[in-house]
């Protein structure tokens, strides 16, 4: 059965500045939805609205057509990878996986660089490894959907390729909403992409679409 996460009617203002006004977003299980946008366009705000962490004048966030106001209280519905490190730094890698009821051996098989590192504290890992642990727990933990805010940041090219491969495999188990400035990686893994511009979402499929919508300026249209 395919599950859906839809959001529309979202209005968000910071003082006199309107951040979001005409947003429509649809995610489905089994698919990766990309969300692009320049800095300050409200991508992270939109994710926090979907979670119910950020209150707005009006919004409608629906899971399978049913309005859910506080998805943050339903980890079975929606998990969230924020753009910053969120694992308490004093925890060991195995403790983190145990908290999320995930098997360390499976993690080790997926990311062999963690072999024998289960007792290392997360703050002793490199930035890329720390981020890898965070991505793994959010992607692997059971839920219908997961939102990943800048998952490729802090990762080296090899780690990025591994994460892309991992996401392509795991999309069979849930739906993903991903935002990142590394648009080429995002386009590689996404089934559909939205560009957030001037408070509105615009469907985009190719680099040419992104250039047409003014997100890129690399001469694809020339």
């Amino acid at each position: 059965m395919i599950h859906t996460l839809e959001a529309d009617g979202i209005e968000l203002d910071f003082g006199l500045r309107r951040i979001l006004s005409d947003v429509y977003l649809k995610c489905e299980t089994g698919k990766i939805t990309g969300l692009l946008g320049r800095n300050g366009q409200g991508k992270s705000c939109l994710m926090n609205i979907l979670l119910g962490n950020l209150q707005t004048a009006s919004n409608s966030v629906r899971f399978d057509g049913k309005v859910i106001k506080k998805a943050s209280k339903r980890s079975d519905l929606l998990l969230y990878l924020p753009q910053f490190n969120f694992i308490p730094k004093s925890l060991k890698v195995k403790q983190v996986l145990d908290d999320f009821q995930l098997n360390y051996a499976d993690f080790e098989n997926r990311f062999p660089e963690f072999k024998g590192r289960q007792h290392v504290k997360v703050n002793s890992l490199s930035g890329g490894q720390w981020r890898t642990v965070e991505i793994y727990i959010i992607v692997k933990s059971p839920s219908l959907f997961a939102m990943l805010d800048e998952p490729f940041t802090h990762l080296n090219p090899i780690q990025i390729e591994k994460i892309k491969e991992f996401l392509m495999e795991e999309k069979a188990n849930k739906g993903f909403l991903i935002t990142d400035h590394m648009y080429s990686h995002l386009l590689d893994v996404s089934d559909n992409v939205y560009l957030l511009k001037d408070g509105k979402t615009h469907p985009a499929k190719t680099i040419a679409d992104l250039e047409y919508l003014g997100y890129l300026n690399i001469g694809v249209r020339d």
Binding site: S75, Y80, F86
Partner: peptide, 15 residues
């Protein structure tokens, strides 16, 4: 001071 860590607990179902 620990607002980032609160997302850890949130993802574990503890608001």
């Amino acid at each position: 001071y620990k607002k980032n860590e609160l997302y850890y607990y949130q993802n574990l179902g503890i608001s």
